[in-house]
């Protein structure tokens, strides 16, 4: 009946991965690092994988999650220069 726009655990997880971008952890490991229940975290991680914030390698308990850094591109097109 009630759902979050901004799921606290999801945000916590995202910020954790941004702070520690080279983290490679299983669900269990992450639950330990974040001090959260693995059950609660599982759903959140699924969500983050589905929005491509995280990548999952492997399956089951040994699946490893890692952060996908957003793509950064500089744009400096000539037309843009002229237009500006």
């Amino acid at each position: 009946m009630v759902s979050f726009h901004l799921h606290p655990l999801q945000v916590e997880c995202t910020l954790f991965f941004q702070d520690n971008p080279y983290t490679y952890e299983t669900l269990k490991g992450l639950a330990m690092r974040l001090g959260r229940n693995a059950e609660d975290l599982a759903a959140v991680l699924d969500q983050l994988v589905s929005t491509m914030v995280l990548e999952m390698n492997g399956t089951g308990d040994s699946a490893i999650y890692r952060y996908i850094q957003p793509v950064t591109i500089d744009l400096q097109k000539e037309e843009l220069c002229e237009d500006m």
């Binding site: 520690n20 080279y22 983290t23 490679y24 952890e25 299983t26 269990k28 490991g29 330990m32 690092r33 390698n57 040994s62 490893i64 890692r66």
Partner: peptide
Amino acid sequence: RVICLSPEVLISQMKQPNGI
């Protein structure tokens, strides 16, 4: 790279061909 992972993950990934 400052990498954060669990010991089990490290050992299993090290053993795995083309692992992390």
